[in-house]
Amino acid sequence: MTKPSLHPFTWWLWAIGLAVAILRFDSTWFTVSCVGVVMVVVYTCRDNAPWAKSFDWTLKLSAWILAVRTVIGIAIGVPIPGTPIFTMPIVPLPEWMPGIRIGGTVTWERLSSSLTEGLLICSIIVIFGAAASLTSPHRLLRVLPIYIYEFAVAVVIATSVLPQLVSSVKRIRMAQRLRGQKTRGFSSWKRVAIPLLEESLARSLDLAASMDSRGYGVSKKRSRYRPISWRLKDSLVVITALGLVVIS
């Protein structure tokens, strides 16, 4: 045992607190600095577990979402007047769709508003991705109350399968590169997705079968071999997030 880690709920409560604070502040600078803090926390606190590596993918995913959201945001929608940057040709739309247009003049105001909205979505994804990569899904299972056991099984399977997907993606992409296939671009994703889905489904079923045959959820009471306790450290982490919620 290297170091006693935090309570499994700690990072999730912290993430919820940060998310609420971000939504209430609704300020770009606050959002960006929150994401920065989260990144620093993850890169210093994470250990060498498989789920810890999923954070890099969370970052990539949210960067991609931000890019798509921005492009769509400036190309489609209600025009906002302001300083123009460049002009795109307007796609003619039928008369029954008034107020919506595709293309046209892109203004600073429109660009910045779609960036801000995209950033908000991404920050929430990053924050919860951080919680998932800092918390062991197995420890989470141990503290979830047993009477919501079906829900708990689903949560644990989801949180433990997702990070394992990341290592499976690496393995499958390697195999396909060796088959001489391209591993970049959209069509390569289709080739990765099919073996990936199959494997994650098989994995989830195995885990569920294992939990089932070991009697999980049969007895409503559960004893503790080595109880996970809530310590001062945990309270401190949660208080930092709660503090932000209060001042927002």
């Binding site: 999980y216 049969v218 007895s219 009471k221 559960r222 004893s223 080595r226």
Partner: peptide
């Protein structure tokens, strides 16, 4: 310990 914990 897991198997024994769930059997209480």
């Amino acid at each position: 310990a897991f198997g024994m914990e769930v059997l209480n």
